[in-house]
Design a protein around this nucleic acid. Sequence first.
RNA 1: GUGGAUGUAGUUCAGCUGGUUAGAACGUCGGAUUGUGGAUCCGAAGGUCGGGGGUUCGAAUCCCCUCAUCCACCCCA
Length: 419
Amino acid sequence: MKFKAVKGTSDVLPAESSGWQYVESVIRRQAEKFGFREIRTPIFEETALFVKGTGDTTDIVQKEMYTFTDKGNRSITLKPEGTPPVIRAMLEHNLLKENPLAKVYYIAPMFRYERPQAGRMRQHTQFGAEIVGSPSPQADVEVISLLFHTLQELGLSGLKLRLNTLGCPKCRPQYREKLVGYLKPKLPNLCEYCNDRFLRNPLRVLDCKVDQDKFDDAPEMGQFLCTECRDHFQAVQDNLSVISIPFVLDKKLVRGLDYYTRTAFEVASRHLGAQDALGGGGRYDGLVEELGGDPTPGVGFGSGIERYLLAMKNQGVKFPEEKRTDYFIATLGNEAKIKGMEIGTQLRLKGYICEQELLDRSLKAQMREANRLNTRFVILIGEDEIKKGVVTIKDMDGHSQRVVPLNELVEKILGAAKQ
RNA sequence: GUGGAUGUAGUUCAGCUGGUUAGAACGUCGGAUUGUGGAUCCGAAGGUCGGGGGUUCGAAUCCCCUCAUCCACCCCA
């Protein structure tokens, strides 16, 4: 085979696209119920937006971006995540000046140069949402609720919401300093990954699978939280409880993006493999300012639609049935084909789903095709019908058929379809 | 970037320690029903055995290289 979809990308074939459309429609309905409005930003951005927004210490920026130079000598990057472009667009168009609160969602492709595996692609599609402008813990909860309830609405079960707080620029540095002091003497005894993580993001070291048991006496973020952060975190938990969203506290949950403050969360499915997060997000109270706006709080999430579909498949979730074909026009002979074209056009104008044979197959094959399409009625036009100026209509469910004169065809079948 | 597994019809797979015409199921097409679907029966088409090189009288099968896919690490959606 000559051409193949490049590594880590895949095609959504007709057999799967109805599943996608269904998921997308559920997402849009949920987002709109909460009052989120869609935002569409370009598929690529100036590279610097991610270096500054996502953070230059993150894996995404250090080794996963699809970056290239365009003919105008600009450094361009295919977006690896959705939040920085959304903030950029809000600032560029002064959305936050028009209204101090902005709630947006998006369904968009993301690109990361990673080694593909189950649930991880180089191009994947994220459903994300952001609330910008509100410092309220209820904004955190609204965003979590949108994600959680969307997943539930799709029929996903075995969901696990993990929750943590990362503190703020006031209290996190103190914890970080303490943790670094605690870890430093242990480094020679820790694995190479730990040593690597220690340099990039010390909070991550505690999450190591190899050395996990060596950190029993490690200092905890909880002991260092300032009162504002502590209250905020408590309020998030209280509100989640009020709306009956179950969660577990996970002190090791440290998201891989630099901009998170306070709340961090992740929803995982037990129906997925190693990459089990359906979505994750958190609060980013410093990001807007970092990208050149006034200090403005924000909170949001990103979630992977390919993973939704994977989890739904693994879990055996049933998708709604596809629409059936109302009329299949089976034809024999040239005149019949022309007549069929005419009839089909009229039926579609009336709003029916209507297909016509395009391969000149045998009548048997055409009937088989009609059956495959789950057709309600077959309109048969052969040489006999042409001679007599009629059409044979077969009811595929009732197995009955009758002959209808051409001139009253549309009226007749309109009636039949209403039954 | 690291490790492991796998590449044979459209699809899912079989093919024993190398032996000559590479099989099955499903799907497709045709027939049983000269113009009628889903069930059944019969038949047909469809394969450079991922690619290249080597060993051998002989390679889908053994060796080397390469490419791709999958899974895991890392990290994330």
